[in-house]
């Protein structure tokens, strides 16, 4: 299954995703779906961004493309991408 590389920004703690063309992006819709080989390389490359103090705690999660939009396999990542389901006024979902 394809994967997405994610992390949190060091300063704000904000959730971000990796896109090889655009760097770290804030919206899941803009995240790049990676093959196994790409994912492994991207995760290794994330160490450099950690070193540069851009992000912390990078990891990969499973996702698939649905209607052209990345959809995570786990509820956890869907919530992380949007914000608390009990506070639609907070998090990325709030716009």
């Amino acid at each position: 299954m394809p994967q997405i590389l994610t992390a949190n920004r060091l300063v704000l703690g904000e959730v971000v995703y990796w896109n090889a063309d655009r760097g770290w992006v804030t919206r899941l819709d803009d995240a790049q779906l990676l093959s196994d080989a790409e994912a492994e390389a991207a995760l290794k490359g994330a160490a450099e961004w950690v070193q540069k103090r851009e992000v912390v705690a990078p990891y990969l999660f499973d996702a698939r493309l649905q209607n052209g939009i990345p959809v995570p396999s786990a509820v956890r990542e869907a919530i992380r991408a949007a914000g608390p389901t009990v506070r639609p006024d907070l998090g990325k979902q709030a716009g």
Partner: peptide
């Protein structure tokens, strides 16, 4: 200070 799902 923890790093949680959306933020610190």
């Amino acid at each position: 200070l923890y790093l949680q799902l959306h933020s610190y």
